[in-house]
Amino acid sequence: MHDRLDHHRMTGDASLAAALRALPASTPARDAWPELASRIRRRRVVRKAVWFTLPAAFAAGMALTLAWPHLQRSTASPAPVRVAMQSSSHATPPAAPDIDALQASSQQWQAWVQTLDRDGAPLDGRQLTQAVALQDRIGLVDLQLSAARNPSTTVGLWQQRITLLQQLGLLHLQPYLVATQRPASHDHLISM
């Protein structure tokens, strides 16, 4: 009895498998190749942009991080004495090399942001609003820089400018990061 049932089940399985396999192949309604090729090209551009710009940005960030304690030390006030000295001599070099380093870093960040702005993926509405807000704040810092006389204020403003540029750069990278993100749980499925 069991043999007969098993045989019947196997025959039924085999006939179902045969029927399913006999279903004709389908053809997609539209040619997906142009879109696929375009996606591949876009991703190549993005990957290049990210690979070329991220190390530079990282290096600039690292340099700034390493230099920052020194910058703070050199500009931090032994306040009364220093101020007194400055006011008496009117010729204190206001930590000029440090400001130069900050200006150079700021230029690097600005160039990076401009490259991303020019060649990168378009920002969506929310990101665009954030970008405009950041640019406005950078403009305000520039205005303050043009009026700043105190070296410590100047250093602080340059640092602020660099931070804003970094935020702007990261904002431009967001579309790429989102595009390449997939839930990690999917990766285990590809295992051949």
Binding site: L5, H8, R9, G12, S15, A19, L23
Partner: peptide, 20 residues
Amino acid sequence: DDDAPAPWAHADSATLDRAL
């Protein structure tokens, strides 16, 4: 019902496709 006849053996591909 294992003894029931296999209807897919007699169904055309379009019908089987729809059922699937």
